[in-house]
């Protein structure tokens, strides 16, 4: 927007933005000072004192090692990677199938089918917890990686379908009709045409659902024991019984955030596109 503002307004604008930015950075700066300290230094000195500059990399490395190995965040990090990959890729793929069918194949009342699936997104997750726990128990899938991965996958589908369906509307229907008249099977036109053409939607869905699954606390808390996802593991380490020293806990928390940071940065382009995708007519 090229509206000219008076100079004193601009000063005010800068003041507001800078004050806000300082508040926003405050926790991050304080955590940055924390992770370069050894636990012993953290306990012995005031919060804002810093160790010798040469000692910082060593402390950070040791905190990292302790968080990954001793506190077993590395292990739950790996678990979460499995869950988030399966949920991200799986929900994107299944939704691309369904999205294709809903928009470009002949199905009775596609809108009702869509709403049947999408309504799942409207319930708070707490609604599903107890029955899912009972189901997994009955199927002998409780406390397995597969079980939790399938749950995450299922939870991810409604929103994934929402994105895919919107994207599918942007593709001309005649195109697929023509392909089928030319003798392509439904699967063929999905596999050769629809799926490659909707790669941006795939990326958006993957990005969203990877992040959601990675950040989930609740399902991990109730549905896992040995194969805890990383946020549940962090919650445990910060809880009442935990005695993990604070610099190690915070280092672990930061490492646990790296995948979402990376996914967000690498896919920011798609991510922003994703939002326009879901709001565009």
């Amino acid at each position: 927007m090229n509206i000219k503002m008076k100079a004193h307004y601009m000063v005010l604008v800068y003041v507001i933005l800078i004050v806000l930015a300082v508040v926003w950075m405050f926790p991050l700066v304080s955590m940055a000072t924390l992770i370069v300290k050894s636990p012993a230094e953290f306990n012995a000195f005031p919060f804002w004192s810093l160790p010798e500059i040469q000692a910082m990399p060593g402390n950070l490395a040791e905190n990292f090692r302790a968080a990954m190995v001793d506190a077993e965040i590395g292990y739950s990090f790996f678990n979460s990677l499995i869950y988030a990959m399966i949920a991200g890729v799986g929900s994107a793929f299944l939704s691309s199938l369904a999205g294709f069918a809903l928009v470009h194949l002949r199905i009775r009342a596609p809108q009702s089918w869509f709403m049947t699936i999408f309504i799942g997104n409207m319930f708070p997750f707490q609604m599903f917890l107890i029955p899912l726990y009972l189901f997994l128990n009955a199927l002998y899938l409780y406390d397995t990686r597969l079980g939790l991965a399938l749950v995450y996958l299922g939870i991810c589908i409604p929103f994934a379908l929402f994105v895919y369906r919107n994207y599918a509307f942007t593709l001309p229907r005649d195109f697929f009709d023509a392909a089928m008249v030319d003798g392509a099977s439904k699967w063929g036109s999905f596999y050769r045409l629809f799926f490659p053409m909707t790669i941006p939607a795939f990326a958006v869905v993957f990005c969203f659902q990877f992040m959601w699954t990675w950040n989930d606390l609740l399902f991990g808390l109730i549905l896992s024991e040995r194969y805890r996802p990383v946020m549940t593991a962090l919650m445990r380490l910060s809880g009442a019984r935990a005695t993990v020293p604070e610099p190690i806990l915070v280092t672990g928390a930061i490492v646990a955030s790296l995948p979402t940071v990376i996914v967000l940065l690498v896919m920011l382009k798609f991510f922003v596109r994703g939002f326009t995708l879901v709001t565009e007519k």
Binding site: L94, S95, L97, A98, W113, G120, M127, V151, G154
Partner: peptide, 11 residues
């Protein structure tokens, strides 16, 4: 497939 997952996991 999508419907089945949503049925079992949510509905």
């Amino acid at each position: 497939p999508a419907l089945a997952f949503v049925l079992v996991a949510e509905l």
